[in-house]
Structures are given as C-alpha cells and as structure tokens.
C-alpha cells in the first residue's frame, strides 16, 4: 500500500493550485505562527481550517473544559471529551495533531491575561475566538503595542460579525467601541446555531490566509455582519472612526487594557451560569491534596489529570484547575461566587 508522506506539500496540492496562494504562499504559511485565543465554537473551527491549511505553528489557548452542550457546534470535540471533562485546549491539541502531524500544535489551558499574551509577541497573527470583551480589549492593546494583526469574530443566535484589525492601518477596537460593552445578558438568552459559527470561522480564516500569505491587497477592509436566519448582510467602511486621541492606537498610546487595574480577577462566563475566580498570583494547584480536603468535608468529587470537580450544596459546584483557577458553577453573581471561593480557599 502506498504510504503517504504527510510532510510533503502534496497534501496541500489543491490549495497550491489556488493561484493567489500557490507554492510561494504555501511556503509562507509554513513559516507562520498563529495564536488562536479561545477553543470554543470559533476557536475549534478556525484551528481546524488553519491546521489543515498547513500553518506551521498553531497555539490555541482556552480556560474552559468540554461539556455536553458544546458538541452541537464545537467541531473538534467528541462525546468522550465531554464525559471526561477534558480541558478544551488539551482536547483541541490532541484532535489537531491527528489532523496534521507535520505542523507544530500546542494547546494552552489558561485564562489569557496580558501576562500570558506577552509570551506571544513574535506571532504573525492572532485570531480572536473569545467570548468576552475584556479579553478582546487586552488583545487589541497588545496587538497595537506589538504591531500584530488580529481578526475579531463573534456570533450569537444566527448572527455573526468580523473585522480585521491591522495596526497602523485600520481603526482599533477601542476606536469602534469607546467602552467595554456589557454582554452578559445576550449569550445566556439567545442561543446559537452552528451555521452562524461556521460562517464567521470561514470569514476569519479566509482573511487569515490572505494575511499569512501576504496577499494584503485582497484583505477585506469593512466591518462585516450577517444574519443567516433573517437573510441580512451588512458591510460598513469604518476607517473614518480611527481616532488620533485613542489611548490604544492614537498618537500617544497608553494601552489601558494591558494594565493591572483593568484585569478582572473574577469573571462571569458567557452563557454558563458560572463565575471564574483567578488567584492574584498564578500557582500550580495540588489537585489530589484538594480532592482529599473536599472528601474529608463530605463532598463528592471527580478528578482527571487536569481538573477537580466538587459537588457542593445544590445548585453549586466548583471546578479547580491545575493553574489555580476555580470555576463556581450555579451562579452568575460574582459576590456569591467569591464568598463560596473564600470558604474553601482563604483570601
């Protein structure tokens, strides 16, 4: 039987035949490093396409773990990943390595803070696949500071939106938004259909391929949105919104969202009835120690190599991660979540 050599460019032959990419573009892709922030619906889709396309180095970062309700749209995950509560970044890395073994792929189980971003100042592109504007505005400032292009993408219901933020050329996210929008209410209530996800990932990855193969003239310059259920599509040229006094991209930038005071220690997770608490100083948690502590207190626990789940008094449940983060499930109230956290983990 013919044993294919997966390291060769043969696997990319159809993409190389596509004239704007060609052999030259394929070689460029191999040299590039893309950071994908978020391994949920958009992150899964973007990562799979970029891995199949032959981007040389992919890093995918996520703070969450796989649950049953993800399977409807998060294409990298299986029922087994959900039943074993695998961290998404880890499950994604495993699956992507099965898809393409000839590229570098690493999954990072972490909350993406400005400190984490600092480790990626040499990436060629950041794909936004997060579910919140706190992280997006940190990405925005980081990319302005380091001169890295990033591609915003988001979806809700049957609606999707995307924009290419190119430092020095386009307005930045702070120019477009002025302040952090409160989005908590929306994702809880409106749901999401998979085609909206796929549409956004297609738009994001098409633009990514243009950037990575340096086809700058083909880049879309508009803010694009669509609604697949209501058959609407809209594009706006927002270049006039670039603001010279902007603190993220203006003449005297201050990068406010990379500063300590803007970082939330406790965050409500989009659509999850869950609050994440991040300790002030990151540390490796000893999960087996905590498992015995909670069992000693009479709680039921479940543990894998990456996390410890503890069933508390109904409706609460907490999940401890190796990097010291804790999810408090069963509430959207940060104060309530903190009080549960401090009952067990002190201050």
């Amino acid at each position: 039987m013919h044993e294919p050599n997966y390291d060769s460019f043969k696997r990319y032959s159809r993409q190389i035949l596509f004239q704007p990419i060609g052999k030259n573009g394929q070689e460029k892709l191999k040299e590039k490093h893309v950071l994908i922030i978020g391994a949920g619906a958009l992150g899964s889709g973007c990562a799979e396409i970029l891995a199949r396309s032959g981007v040389g180095t992919l890093t995918i970062a996520d703070r969450d773990y796989v649950e049953e309700s993800n399977l409807q749209r998060q294409q990298l995950y299986t029922e087994e990943d959900a039943s074993t509560s695998l961290p998404k970044a880890y499950a994604a890395e495993q699956r992507l390595k099965q898809i393409n073994q000839s590229i570098e792929i690493s999954g990072l189980v972490t909350d993406v803070t400005p400190e984490v971003l600092e480790r990626f100042s040499d990436v060629d592109l950041i794909i936004d696949a997060t579910d919140n504007f706190d992280t997006r505005l940190s990405i925005n400032d980081f990319c302005q500071k380091q001169n890295i292009p990033w591609i915003y993408g988001a979806c809700l219901g049957s609606y999707g939106i995307s924009y290419n933020f190119i430092p020095g050329k386009t307005p930045c996210m702070s120019c477009l938004l002025e302040q952090i929008p409160l989005t908590g209410a929306t994702c809880d209530s409106e749901g999401i259909i998979a085609p909206a996800v796929q549409m956004v990932t297609s738009i994001q990855t098409a633009e990514a391929l243009k950037i990575l193969t340096e086809n700058w003239d083909s880049l879309r310059t508009t803010l694009l949105s669509f609604d697949l259920w209501n058959n609407e599509r809209s594009e706006i040229d927002v270049s006039v919104l670039k603001t010279d006094s902007c603190l993220s991209c203006g003449a005297n930038p201050d990068f406010p969202y990379l500063k300590y005071q803007h970082q939330t220690k406790a965050a409500v997770l989009c659509g999850r009835n869950t609050v994440q608490i991040r300790p002030g100083s990151p540390h490796q948690a000893d999960l087996s120690h905590w498992e015995s502590v909670f069992q000693g207190l009479g709680y039921n626990t479940r543990r894998n190599s990456y996390l410890l789940s503890v069933s508390l008094e109904k409706p609460y449940r907490l999940v401890c991660f190796l990097d010291g983060r804790v999810f408090i499930h069963g509430t959207n109230d940060i104060q309530k979540a903190k009080s549960i956290y401090y009952r067990f983990f002190g201050s």
Binding site: G38, G40, A41, L42, G43, D128, A129, T130, D131, N132, F133, G153, A154, C155, L156, Y159, I161, L176, L177, P181, T183, T186, C187, I192, L223, L224, S225, S234, E235, I236, C270, G271
Partner: peptide
C-alpha cells in the same frame, strides 16, 4: 441604513 451590532459570543 446599515446597522452593525457588536456581539461577544464565540
């Protein structure tokens, strides 16, 4: 009119 709204979900 073109109305484009920012959403957060991903």
């Amino acid at each position: 009119l073109e109305l484009v709204k920012f959403v957060g979900g991903g």
